Computed example of a mutant assay.
Amino acid sequence: MFSLWVAFVIGIVEGLTEFLPVSSTGHMILAGNMLGFTGDKAETFEVVIQLGAILAVAVIYWRRVLRLFGMRDEAARAKPRRINLLHIALAIVPALGLAFVFRDWIKMLFMPETVVIGLVAGGIFMIVGEKQQPKITATDMDELTYRQSLFIGIAQCLSLWPGFSRSGATIAGGMLAGASRAAAADFTFLIAIPVMCAATGYELLKSYGTMTPDDIGFLAVGFVVSFVVALLAVVTFIKLVGKLKLTYFSYYRFALAAVVLLYMYTVGFPG
């Protein structure tokens, strides 16, 4: 069993990076390799604790989630209802389908070398989304069309490569589809809830036979830490992502990729 402090550290990393387009998975893989935390159980852990951070979004968006199921308050009834479950389905089914089919192949990519590629490729895609954005037709998440939702869903498939970033791919994809940065960011955080619930549930089912009581405690620590840290950071980060240009995050990704490459070829990861 790995030390609980490893779960604590990686839980903090996840909570701080989940809501920024810098790839929380990539950061967890890099942190895990530096701590000697690798292997099948580490990969399962990295998927499961993301749900802890995503639940922080559910806390923020709980009214929006309820409205998707027809439960609307008086203020909501006064506004046109645009976003519905079909928008959500179009945005999540492509990535979930590919993840289901190629799960084992995707998990083979959970290594620093592929993360570096994802950081750079994702950064380039984000710059393209920022620079090539067409005329904005959706300034608010409720103005997104089914076509735009599907385009975001297709873009989300790129995030199956570790380091690419789910939020980076979907925000840039939304901008390329004609959504404002803020609308794309809001929708990105909303669809993260069903995506990570499905991914976590499936991962636990696939890994159930290899789990031990000690592993459950380890997962619980990471889950709780990522939830608490994310809950403290989510409001600030959601506003930050909605306002800052994606190019700023791309520069950070390029710098991180360079640092990781330098570390790999000088110090090297344990094992």
Rank of each mutant, 00 (worst) to 15 (best):
F37W: 06
I106D: 08
G118T: 04
A91H: 06
S159P: 00
G178H: 05
E113Q: 03
A53L: 12
S207K: 15
A220Q: 06
N84K: 12
L35N: 03
S165I: 03
P80D: 12
V120E: 09
E14Q: 15
D104Y: 06
T44D: 13
F37P: 05
M175E: 03
S24N: 05
Q148P: 06
L240S: 08
A255R: 01
G11T: 13
L90M: 10
L261K: 07
P134L: 15
A199V: 12
T200V: 09
S167D: 01
G97D: 02
G209Y: 08
T25Y: 09
L119V: 01
G209W: 12
A121F: 15
V48L: 15
K206G: 00
Q132R: 15
D40L: 12
L231T: 13
E14Y: 10
L4T: 08
A255L: 13
F269K: 00
I136T: 14
F45Q: 09
G242H: 06
M211K: 01
V128R: 11
R82E: 07
I10S: 04
L35Q: 08
V65S: 06
I117P: 06
W62D: 03
R147G: 10
M141E: 09
E14L: 10
Y61S: 05
I49H: 00
T145Y: 10
G174M: 10
T25W: 09
I83Q: 07
L261G: 00
A179N: 04
M175R: 05
A230I: 04
M111S: 14
G201I: 14
M28A: 11
A185W: 04
A172R: 04
A155H: 02
I83D: 05
L244M: 14
Q132D: 13
T137V: 10
F223D: 08
M34W: 14
W5Y: 14
E46I: 10
S250A: 15
A258L: 15
D186H: 02
A233K: 12
F187L: 06
I60W: 08
F100N: 01
Y252L: 11
R253N: 12
R81T: 13
G97M: 00
E46W: 03
A91P: 11
A99K: 07
S180M: 10
I29T: 07
G26S: 05
R166M: 10
M111F: 05
M1V: 14
F189P: 00
I12C: 11
E74H: 08
S226G: 06
A233L: 14
S165N: 06
L55Q: 05
M126K: 10
I60E: 07
D40F: 12
R147W: 07
C197F: 13
F254C: 05
A95P: 01
A138F: 02
A233P: 07
K243A: 15
S149F: 03
I216C: 07
K41G: 02
A56E: 06
E46A: 09
